[in-house]
Design a protein around this nucleic acid. Sequence first.
DNA 1: TTTTCACTTGCAAAGATTTGCGTCTGTGCG
DNA 2: CGCACAGACGCAAATCTTTGCAAGTGAAAA
Lengths: 135, 135
Amino acid sequence: MSQAAKTPRASSADAAILQVLRPELRHLTSKQIHTAVRKQLPAISLVTVYRSLERLARAGQVSISDMGTGAVVYARVTESLHHHLICQDCGGIVTIEHAEVGRWFAALSRRHGFKVTTNHLVLFGLCAGCQATHR
Amino acid sequence: MSQAAKTPRASSADAAILQVLRPELRHLTSKQIHTAVRKQLPAISLVTVYRSLERLARAGQVSISDMGTGAVVYARVTESLHHHLICQDCGGIVTIEHAEVGRWFAALSRRHGFKVTTNHLVLFGLCAGCQATHR
DNA sequence: TTTTCACTTGCAAAGATTTGCGTCTGTGCG
DNA sequence: CGCACAGACGCAAATCTTTGCAAGTGAAAA
Ligand SMILES: [Zn+2]
Ligand SMILES: [Zn+2]
Ligand SMILES: [Zn+2]
Ligand SMILES: [Zn+2]
Protein backbone atom coordinates (compact mmCIF):
# COMPACT_ATOMS: atom_id res chain seq x y z
CA MET A 1 0.00 0.00 0.00
CA SER A 2 1.53 3.22 1.15
CA GLN A 3 5.19 3.48 1.86
CA ALA A 4 4.74 3.13 5.58
CA ALA A 5 6.75 5.65 7.52
CA LYS A 6 7.18 3.46 10.50
CA THR A 7 10.13 1.24 9.66
CA PRO A 8 13.22 2.80 8.09
CA ARG A 9 14.17 1.38 4.76
CA ALA A 10 15.97 -1.39 6.55
CA SER A 11 16.76 -4.57 4.70
CA SER A 12 16.43 -3.64 1.11
CA ALA A 13 18.57 -3.68 -1.81
CA ASP A 14 15.60 -5.84 -2.74
CA ALA A 15 13.17 -2.94 -2.81
CA ALA A 16 15.52 -0.78 -4.81
CA ILE A 17 16.12 -3.53 -7.33
CA LEU A 18 12.43 -4.23 -7.77
CA GLN A 19 12.04 -0.52 -8.36
CA VAL A 20 14.66 -0.60 -11.08
CA LEU A 21 13.01 -3.58 -12.71
CA ARG A 22 9.63 -1.91 -12.52
CA PRO A 23 8.94 -1.37 -16.20
CA GLU A 24 7.66 -4.62 -17.56
CA LEU A 25 9.46 -6.45 -20.30
CA ARG A 26 12.66 -4.92 -19.07
CA HIS A 27 15.55 -7.34 -19.10
CA LEU A 28 18.65 -6.06 -17.39
CA THR A 29 22.04 -7.55 -16.62
CA SER A 30 23.50 -7.57 -13.13
CA LYS A 31 25.82 -4.78 -14.13
CA GLN A 32 23.02 -2.62 -15.48
CA ILE A 33 21.00 -3.20 -12.35
CA HIS A 34 23.97 -2.35 -10.20
CA THR A 35 24.51 0.91 -12.01
CA ALA A 36 20.84 1.86 -11.86
CA VAL A 37 20.30 0.92 -8.25
CA ARG A 38 23.29 2.98 -7.15
CA LYS A 39 21.24 6.08 -7.73
CA GLN A 40 19.21 5.03 -4.73
CA LEU A 41 21.89 3.21 -2.77
CA PRO A 42 25.22 4.71 -3.82
CA ALA A 43 27.32 2.33 -1.77
CA ILE A 44 25.72 -0.96 -2.73
CA SER A 45 28.13 -3.57 -4.03
CA LEU A 46 27.68 -5.77 -7.07
CA VAL A 47 27.85 -8.86 -4.87
CA THR A 48 24.88 -7.62 -2.91
CA VAL A 49 22.98 -7.11 -6.13
CA TYR A 50 23.67 -10.72 -7.08
CA ARG A 51 22.57 -11.98 -3.69
CA SER A 52 19.49 -9.85 -3.69
CA LEU A 53 18.51 -11.05 -7.14
CA GLU A 54 18.97 -14.64 -6.07
CA ARG A 55 16.72 -13.98 -3.07
CA LEU A 56 14.07 -12.34 -5.23
CA ALA A 57 14.24 -15.21 -7.68
CA ARG A 58 13.70 -17.74 -4.91
CA ALA A 59 10.71 -15.69 -3.83
CA GLY A 60 9.37 -15.83 -7.36
CA GLN A 61 9.56 -12.10 -7.89
CA VAL A 62 12.34 -12.06 -10.44
CA SER A 63 13.28 -14.33 -13.34
CA ILE A 64 16.82 -15.22 -14.30
CA SER A 65 17.50 -16.11 -17.92
CA ASP A 66 20.28 -16.56 -20.38
CA MET A 67 19.08 -14.93 -23.56
CA GLY A 68 22.31 -15.60 -25.36
CA THR A 69 23.77 -12.14 -24.92
CA GLY A 70 26.81 -13.14 -22.95
CA ALA A 71 25.41 -12.14 -19.59
CA VAL A 72 22.37 -13.40 -17.75
CA VAL A 73 19.39 -11.04 -17.67
CA TYR A 74 16.95 -10.45 -14.86
CA ALA A 75 13.32 -9.42 -15.15
CA ARG A 76 10.52 -8.69 -12.76
CA VAL A 77 7.87 -11.37 -12.59
CA THR A 78 4.35 -10.00 -12.82
CA GLU A 79 0.90 -11.47 -13.09
CA SER A 80 1.20 -11.64 -16.85
CA LEU A 81 4.13 -13.91 -17.57
CA HIS A 82 5.77 -14.00 -20.95
CA HIS A 83 8.36 -16.10 -22.75
CA HIS A 84 10.63 -15.85 -25.77
CA LEU A 85 11.70 -17.53 -28.96
CA ILE A 86 15.13 -16.30 -30.02
CA CYS A 87 16.54 -16.79 -33.50
CA GLN A 88 20.09 -18.03 -33.29
CA ASP A 89 20.76 -16.67 -36.74
CA CYS A 90 19.50 -13.10 -36.81
CA GLY A 91 19.01 -12.65 -33.08
CA GLY A 92 15.37 -11.79 -33.60
CA ILE A 93 13.23 -12.16 -30.50
CA VAL A 94 9.62 -13.31 -30.51
CA THR A 95 7.72 -12.71 -27.30
CA ILE A 96 4.87 -15.06 -26.54
CA GLU A 97 2.30 -14.81 -23.84
CA HIS A 98 2.08 -17.30 -21.05
CA ALA A 99 -1.17 -18.90 -22.13
CA GLU A 100 0.16 -21.25 -24.76
CA VAL A 101 3.16 -22.13 -22.64
CA GLY A 102 1.07 -22.63 -19.53
CA ARG A 103 -1.21 -25.03 -21.33
CA TRP A 104 1.74 -27.24 -22.11
CA PHE A 105 3.12 -26.95 -18.57
CA ALA A 106 -0.28 -28.08 -17.33
CA ALA A 107 -0.11 -31.10 -19.59
CA LEU A 108 3.32 -31.94 -18.20
CA SER A 109 1.93 -31.62 -14.73
CA ARG A 110 -0.85 -34.05 -15.52
CA ARG A 111 1.51 -36.53 -17.07
CA HIS A 112 4.42 -36.33 -14.64
CA GLY A 113 2.98 -34.86 -11.48
CA PHE A 114 5.62 -32.19 -11.88
CA LYS A 115 4.66 -28.55 -11.46
CA VAL A 116 6.86 -26.35 -13.63
CA THR A 117 7.80 -23.03 -12.07
CA THR A 118 10.02 -21.74 -14.84
CA ASN A 119 8.51 -18.32 -15.31
CA HIS A 120 10.49 -16.93 -18.23
CA LEU A 121 11.23 -19.62 -20.76
CA VAL A 122 13.71 -18.97 -23.54
CA LEU A 123 13.85 -21.25 -26.55
CA PHE A 124 16.38 -20.92 -29.34
CA GLY A 125 15.80 -21.75 -32.97
CA LEU A 126 15.25 -20.24 -36.38
CA CYS A 127 12.73 -17.59 -37.25
CA ALA A 128 10.66 -17.91 -40.41
CA GLY A 129 12.96 -15.68 -42.41
CA CYS A 130 16.15 -17.44 -41.41
CA GLN A 131 14.63 -20.85 -42.06
CA ALA A 132 14.14 -19.80 -45.65
CA THR A 133 17.67 -18.45 -45.96
CA HIS A 134 19.01 -21.58 -44.37
CA ARG A 135 17.50 -23.82 -46.99
CA MET B 1 38.71 -42.23 -41.84
CA SER B 2 36.08 -44.37 -43.40
CA GLN B 3 33.28 -42.13 -42.26
CA ALA B 4 30.75 -40.51 -44.49
CA ALA B 5 32.04 -37.27 -45.94
CA LYS B 6 29.70 -34.99 -44.12
CA THR B 7 31.96 -32.83 -42.02
CA PRO B 8 35.25 -32.31 -43.82
CA ARG B 9 37.38 -30.67 -41.21
CA ALA B 10 37.71 -32.60 -38.01
CA SER B 11 39.80 -31.06 -35.33
CA SER B 12 41.41 -33.59 -33.06
CA ALA B 13 39.88 -31.87 -30.06
CA ASP B 14 36.38 -32.26 -31.44
CA ALA B 15 36.80 -35.95 -32.11
CA ALA B 16 38.28 -36.61 -28.69
CA ILE B 17 35.48 -34.73 -26.95
CA LEU B 18 32.78 -36.56 -28.84
CA GLN B 19 34.52 -39.75 -27.78
CA VAL B 20 34.40 -38.69 -24.15
CA LEU B 21 30.72 -37.82 -24.44
CA ARG B 22 30.00 -41.11 -26.15
CA PRO B 23 27.86 -42.75 -23.47
CA GLU B 24 24.36 -41.40 -23.80
CA LEU B 25 22.72 -39.51 -21.00
CA ARG B 26 26.15 -38.44 -19.84
CA HIS B 27 26.23 -34.83 -18.73
CA LEU B 28 29.70 -33.52 -18.06
CA THR B 29 31.11 -30.15 -17.10
CA SER B 30 33.86 -28.45 -19.06
CA LYS B 31 36.31 -29.40 -16.36
CA GLN B 32 35.32 -33.05 -16.38
CA ILE B 33 35.58 -33.12 -20.15
CA HIS B 34 38.97 -31.48 -20.02
CA THR B 35 40.25 -34.02 -17.55
CA ALA B 36 38.89 -36.93 -19.53
CA VAL B 37 40.04 -35.75 -22.92
CA ARG B 38 43.57 -35.24 -21.66
CA LYS B 39 44.01 -38.99 -21.68
CA GLN B 40 43.94 -38.75 -25.46
CA LEU B 41 45.40 -35.29 -25.90
CA PRO B 42 47.59 -34.62 -22.85
CA ALA B 43 48.44 -31.07 -23.86
CA ILE B 44 44.98 -29.78 -24.72
CA SER B 45 43.98 -26.61 -22.90
CA LEU B 46 40.70 -25.89 -21.19
CA VAL B 47 40.12 -22.97 -23.55
CA THR B 48 40.31 -25.29 -26.51
CA VAL B 49 37.78 -27.56 -24.87
CA TYR B 50 35.41 -24.62 -24.51
CA ARG B 51 35.91 -23.58 -28.10
CA SER B 52 35.51 -27.08 -29.36
CA LEU B 53 32.30 -27.54 -27.40
CA GLU B 54 30.93 -24.31 -28.79
CA ARG B 55 31.77 -25.48 -32.28
CA LEU B 56 30.12 -28.85 -31.72
CA ALA B 57 27.06 -27.14 -30.28
CA ARG B 58 26.75 -24.92 -33.34
CA ALA B 59 26.97 -28.04 -35.45
CA GLY B 60 24.17 -29.58 -33.43
CA GLN B 61 26.28 -32.40 -32.07
CA VAL B 62 26.43 -31.27 -28.47
CA SER B 63 23.92 -29.65 -26.13
CA ILE B 64 24.81 -27.01 -23.57
CA SER B 65 22.62 -26.73 -20.50
CA ASP B 66 22.52 -25.22 -17.07
CA MET B 67 21.03 -27.89 -14.85
CA GLY B 68 21.40 -25.80 -11.74
CA THR B 69 24.56 -27.45 -10.53
CA GLY B 70 26.78 -24.40 -10.59
CA ALA B 71 28.51 -25.28 -13.85
CA VAL B 72 27.08 -25.76 -17.30
CA VAL B 73 26.90 -29.35 -18.52
CA TYR B 74 27.48 -30.67 -22.01
CA ALA B 75 25.94 -33.74 -23.58
CA ARG B 76 26.18 -35.49 -26.89
CA VAL B 77 23.15 -35.04 -29.12
CA THR B 78 21.91 -38.26 -30.61
CA GLU B 79 18.95 -39.33 -32.68
CA SER B 80 16.88 -39.86 -29.57
CA LEU B 81 16.72 -36.51 -27.85
CA HIS B 82 15.68 -36.19 -24.23
CA HIS B 83 14.83 -33.39 -21.81
CA HIS B 84 14.54 -32.86 -18.08
CA LEU B 85 12.28 -31.64 -15.31
CA ILE B 86 14.35 -30.71 -12.26
CA CYS B 87 12.86 -30.25 -8.80
CA GLN B 88 14.19 -27.07 -7.25
CA ASP B 89 13.45 -28.46 -3.81
CA CYS B 90 14.90 -31.96 -3.68
CA GLY B 91 17.00 -31.78 -6.82
CA GLY B 92 15.23 -34.78 -8.27
CA ILE B 93 15.56 -35.13 -12.03
CA VAL B 94 12.86 -36.47 -14.30
CA THR B 95 13.96 -37.36 -17.80
CA ILE B 96 11.37 -37.16 -20.53
CA GLU B 97 11.64 -38.32 -24.08
CA HIS B 98 11.52 -35.93 -26.98
CA ALA B 99 8.16 -36.95 -28.32
CA GLU B 100 5.98 -34.92 -25.98
CA VAL B 101 8.31 -31.95 -26.19
CA GLY B 102 8.60 -32.17 -29.94
CA ARG B 103 4.85 -32.13 -30.33
CA TRP B 104 4.71 -28.82 -28.54
CA PHE B 105 7.63 -27.42 -30.51
CA ALA B 106 5.77 -28.36 -33.66
CA ALA B 107 2.74 -26.46 -32.44
CA LEU B 108 4.92 -23.41 -31.80
CA SER B 109 6.31 -23.74 -35.27
CA ARG B 110 2.84 -23.78 -36.76
CA ARG B 111 1.73 -20.78 -34.74
CA HIS B 112 4.84 -18.62 -34.96
CA GLY B 113 6.72 -19.94 -37.95
CA PHE B 114 9.60 -20.43 -35.57
CA LYS B 115 11.53 -23.68 -35.63
CA VAL B 116 12.86 -24.48 -32.18
CA THR B 117 16.29 -26.10 -32.15
CA THR B 118 16.76 -26.33 -28.40
CA ASN B 119 17.72 -29.97 -28.12
CA HIS B 120 18.04 -30.46 -24.37
CA LEU B 121 15.37 -28.53 -22.55
CA VAL B 122 15.59 -28.12 -18.79
CA LEU B 123 12.55 -26.98 -16.83
CA PHE B 124 12.59 -26.29 -13.12
CA GLY B 125 9.71 -26.82 -10.74
CA LEU B 126 8.42 -29.06 -8.01
CA CYS B 127 8.14 -32.81 -8.14
CA ALA B 128 5.01 -34.54 -6.87
CA GLY B 129 6.50 -35.25 -3.48
CA CYS B 130 7.78 -31.74 -2.86
CA GLN B 131 4.48 -30.23 -3.97
CA ALA B 132 2.83 -32.11 -1.14
CA THR B 133 5.45 -31.09 1.38
CA HIS B 134 5.19 -27.54 0.22
CA ARG B 135 1.55 -27.26 1.19
C1' DT C 1 55.86 -27.89 -54.60
C1' DT C 2 54.92 -23.32 -52.82
C1' DT C 3 51.54 -19.98 -51.56
C1' DT C 4 47.35 -18.84 -49.62
C1' DC C 5 43.82 -18.72 -46.44
C1' DA C 6 40.61 -20.19 -43.28
C1' DC C 7 40.49 -22.49 -39.08
C1' DT C 8 42.57 -24.22 -34.67
C1' DT C 9 45.15 -23.57 -30.49
C1' DG C 10 47.66 -21.66 -26.43
C1' DC C 11 48.45 -18.16 -23.25
C1' DA C 12 47.28 -14.25 -20.82
C1' DA C 13 43.77 -11.33 -19.54
C1' DA C 14 39.15 -9.90 -19.12
C1' DG C 15 34.47 -10.59 -17.77
C1' DA C 16 30.73 -12.89 -15.18
C1' DT C 17 29.13 -15.10 -11.03
C1' DT C 18 29.77 -17.46 -6.63
C1' DT C 19 31.71 -18.30 -2.09
C1' DG C 20 34.33 -17.69 2.44
C1' DC C 21 34.54 -14.96 6.21
C1' DG C 22 34.16 -11.39 9.39
C1' DT C 23 31.10 -7.44 10.57
C1' DC C 24 26.90 -4.97 11.14
C1' DT C 25 21.94 -4.56 12.00
C1' DG C 26 17.30 -5.61 13.20
C1' DT C 27 14.17 -8.54 15.89
C1' DG C 28 12.49 -11.06 19.69
C1' DC C 29 13.08 -12.21 24.47
C1' DG C 30 14.08 -11.76 29.31
C1' DC D 1 18.18 -2.16 28.33
C1' DG D 2 21.27 -6.13 27.06
C1' DC D 3 21.86 -10.55 24.78
C1' DA D 4 21.25 -14.11 21.30
C1' DC D 5 20.16 -15.38 16.68
C1' DA D 6 19.34 -14.80 11.94
C1' DG D 7 20.02 -12.42 7.90
C1' DA D 8 22.24 -8.79 4.97
C1' DC D 9 26.61 -6.76 3.39
C1' DG D 10 31.27 -5.73 1.87
C1' DC D 11 35.64 -7.30 0.43
C1' DA D 12 38.79 -10.46 -1.31
C1' DA D 13 39.40 -14.56 -3.55
C1' DA D 14 37.87 -18.46 -6.11
C1' DT D 15 35.32 -20.27 -10.13
C1' DC D 16 33.58 -20.47 -14.53
C1' DT D 17 33.57 -18.83 -19.30
C1' DT D 18 34.84 -15.73 -23.00
C1' DT D 19 37.98 -12.88 -25.74
C1' DG D 20 42.35 -10.72 -27.89
C1' DC D 21 46.32 -11.77 -30.06
C1' DA D 22 50.03 -14.20 -32.14
C1' DA D 23 51.59 -18.61 -33.84
C1' DG D 24 50.74 -23.29 -35.90
C1' DT D 25 48.30 -26.53 -39.34
C1' DG D 26 46.54 -28.42 -43.29
C1' DA D 27 44.18 -28.55 -47.48
C1' DA D 28 42.97 -26.02 -51.68
C1' DA D 29 44.79 -23.00 -55.20
C1' DA D 30 48.39 -21.62 -58.21
ZN1 LIG E 1 11.21 -11.62 -21.28
ZN1 LIG F 1 16.20 -15.13 -37.83
ZN1 LIG G 1 19.98 -34.70 -20.36
ZN1 LIG H 1 11.25 -32.65 -5.19
